[in-house]
Amino acid sequence: MVGLVLVSHSREIAHGLADLVRQMAGEIPLVAVGGTADGRLGTDATAVMAAIEQIWTPEGVLLLMDLGSSVMSAETALELLPGDRAAQVLLCGAPFVEGAIAAGVEASLGKSLAEVRAAADTAGTIAKL
């Protein structure tokens, strides 16, 4: 099953979103990463890399980011990953909440990494109003 890593500047946002995703998708490989080690708002590329390693599966891992430096930290994490693992990790540009929930549900159905990302991207295009 494809794994998900949720990257936010805020620990609460990352973990809160993980709760929402699990409510919809059940138990899937999922790690929330948010804030700095000393409790500030921010992102830490080494923590993102560790999260990818933690839920590593050969099916791959999808990263969803909130904004700004979380994208740069996610890209840096790919560079830090050992060996050829980065080839099995995709970044997703979908809106954080909608994208994560759609990706979680799709992953729980056993879909491929590309399908999981496509579902997240589609979720981002659905009008709220």
Binding site: G35, T36, A37, D38, R40, L41, G42, T43, D44, A45, G68, S69, M72, S73, E75, T76
Partner: peptide, 8 residues
């Protein structure tokens, strides 16, 4: 350790 965009 930086946290913001300056880190990466």
């Amino acid at each position: 350790t930086v946290g913001g965009a300056a880190g990466p």
